[in-house]
Nucleic acid binder design. Structure first.
Lengths: 207, 207
DNA sequence: CTATGTGAATTTATTCACAGCA
DNA sequence: TGCTGTGAATAAATTCACATAG
């Protein structure tokens, strides 16, 4: 742990390492080497070791890494060990899929509430979560929700972001296909499937 | 167009530019400057100009860019102008969301068929697409499907990828949370929401 | 006078090669 | 001997500053 600046790319890869370690753990492994993990997830062993080195010494020379310990360490680095409450806004097709997404629990998140503007949806329950009126977003602060998930139509996305920020969320996962402006203190990550889809043909061989 | 090596990052950003141009076009604009587009999508103007410069000269000095023309140019670069047939494998929660995702048409894709292994699902129709038995994937070649979309459980993902490759697909969009091995000639992009979700807390301010 | 297009400078990230420790 | 951890070398991407064209 001798570095002062951690590359963004290294942080981006940590969850990928975590996913690989989960797989190894499920398959009954107790320890691994950087090489074994690397082959499993499609990167190089020195990339993994370098990335870890930004945060500390997690392995044993000549031996490798203890998987349970490593998972714990990465969870700590990513602050996934403290539990975070999240709120979904927009229960359409995509929002519904998000509601039933099993990945939240795996990474220590709790999907606490869901909001929608459609009166027909308000009051209904999906996956044990009752959909509330969007105007109640302001109550999130009381409920200690720190993460907002936006899955509303594009034209409503910015106002939703503003409402979530006012309600005190510290991070936003944005599924609406647009760039959103938020204060610097709020971290926002936008996911738009189309952005990945649209560059597939570029890489397609002519055949 | 004086460069021989295009940065991967530039290719990754082209769809983002395209999305911004669509927005401007919908809002009635006919032309734009790199600055105006940059502010809309949250990058810098010189980043946009540099990225375009890898592919050609699309603007007019002192004036800016014609939006329709620029959209056409980027579509051509990304090979989105020729139309591509795609097939979905795995019609669970996520797969269903993919089936009703409007973004495909926007970028010139046609979601031609869907497959599932569950006998209860085979024969049913979602969004005008009838779900077929997974064992019929091998017929994709005849139907000129070049893109495969994987949304099956993790343990079935690699065999699905193998089947798709055998059926001649040239690119794969993988929603299963794992790394997949495919021949070099096949381009694969993996999307795992959890990978983005899991790094949100890292960037969250303490307060 | 304005906004593009691009070499050059700078920053950031990856890869290498090996020292260090079990 | 085996595998980690890391400075140094290399490669890639971003930013700058300005020449250039309408």
């Amino acid at each position: 742990m001798r570095y002062y600046r951690v590359p963004n790319e290294a942080v981006r890869r940590l969850p990928v390492y975590l996913r690989g370690l989960f797989t190894l753990s499920e398959d009954g492994h107790e320890s691994t080497s950087s090489k074994k993990l690397a082959d499993l997830i499609g990167v190089t062993s020195w990339q993994i070791r370098k990335d870890f080195s930004y945060f500390g010494d997690f392995g044993t020379r000549g031996v490798g890494y203890n998987i349970k310990k490593l998972i714990k360490e990465i969870n700590k680095i990513l602050k996934l060990d403290t539990g975070h409450k999240a709120a979904l806004v927009g229960v359409g097709n995509l929002g519904s899929a998000v509601l039933s997404y099993p990945g939240f629990k795996m990474y220590g998140f709790e999907l606490a509430t869901a909001f929608d503007a459609d009166p027909d949806k308000i009051g209904k329950t999906i996956n044990n979560i009752t959909i509330e009126d969007t105007c109640k977003i302001k109550e999130l602060k009381k409920r200690k929700v720190v993460i907002g998930i936006i899955a509303v139509p594009r034209h409503a996305a910015q106002e939703t972001a503003d409402a979530l920020v006012s309600a005190g969320v510290k991070a936003i996962l944005n599924f609406s296909p647009c760039y959103l402006t938020v204060p610097k203190k709020v971290k926002i990550i936008t996911i738009d499937i189309a952005m990945d889809l649209a560059r597939l043909p570029y890489y397609m061989r002519a055949s």
